[in-house]
Design a protein around this nucleic acid. Sequence first.
DNA 1: TCTGGGGTCCTAGGACCC
DNA 2: TCTGGGGTCCTAGGACCC
Length: 422
Amino acid sequence: MWALIDCNSFFANVERVFHPGLRHKPVCVLSSNDGIIVALTPKAKALGLHRGDALFKVRDTVEKGGVAVFSTNMMLYSAMSQRVTNIIRQSVDIVENYSIDESFANLAGYEIHFDIEEYMRSVADRICLWTDIPVSVGVAPTKTLAKIGSKFAKQYPGYRSVCMIDSDEKRRKALEIFDLSDVWGIGRRSFDKLKSLGVNTPLEFADKPGDWVRRHFSKPGVETWKELNGYSCIDTSEILMRQNITTSRSFGDMITTIEQVKASVATFAASCANKLRGQSSAAGCVTVFLCSNFFREDLEQYYNAETLPFCVPTADTIEITKTALEIVDRIFKPGIRYKKSGVILGKIVHQDNVQPDLFDPVQNRAERLDLSQRIDGLNQKYGLKTVSLGVEGEKQQPWKVKSEHKSYNYLTDINEILTIRI
DNA sequence: TCTGGGGTCCTAGGACCC
DNA sequence: TCTGGGGTCCTAGGACCC
């Protein structure tokens, strides 16, 4: 059996933890630039707000409904996610951390010594007691069914946080009433296709014969079908090394000069390089893209991207930044008002597997990497951008994101720790 | 005026090899 | 007029996830 432990309205609930006055108020968390709503509590949903709504379009509802609004604070959410995961790992041996707010726990063998439902309920209660984050748990023979269980657990308080799908009767009943478009692995396209084929519920899909499914769908569709029928086949075991690393942002204000574009690209390149070293790897190529504001039909539109390879895979901030800026020189077009840029590192290999080049123009790779790592160390100890490249520019720049409702880094910065007045 | 960011996997088709 | 058979590797784009 698998359990899926899913944190309810995770970002919004993390904010609520540190603002106890909001316990019974609607809360929502915004994307970068305070653009759209990315997380919201049930009370905010009840006002008619949705994930994906642009803030400027729903400002009326937000103000009239007394909704507490927060800018996104990933440092805080990551730190809280770590705490939740740690508690799960204390109770179950094999845990796959699937996303920032979800973990799969492998319960094989646990039924011998425990009442699984009560055991997982005790885990859920402990998470709530120790972190104040409410979770919903689904338990089932496959991950896809466990996901469905957790949605039921979230929807109906009667389950007391844990919904177990452990018999064929329960499975069929769940699949009969569950929304087909909410099944894990069935996105917009597959949903439309199933509808057009006359399939309206997960149960109708599960009951189709295997050759029908294989005729209409390829590997992912067949796997979902098997999982719905109780045959476990989706592997989410942990990805130890990312194959691509991206840093991109929309700008607070549109920018026009090449110096500003370069400052943004240099900042994102340094961020990518830092993430790259964090997983002890090196990149074989770098891509830079620039684009204008596609929502502004009155302005000239532009998008361009280019990729350059490295002679030898590298994790050196200076080398990566220099190459990224060469791309800017090639694709920058004057007269455009730029809204977004981004840096993508690709062809990533582990640093121990880097193939040297006999004609490598860089002689001191080890020292260069050491320099980058020492800069990481200083920035880790004294705060972001304590040491950075000059080309990244000053702290205040028009392209920096808007973030007007950001809470403090209560869990990771000693200067921003929660103050309690008695 | 204001509209997010970061990933993975699969497949078909092109280009190439013998 | 007739024009094989069997592969590999790479990439762009689609579909999906959070």
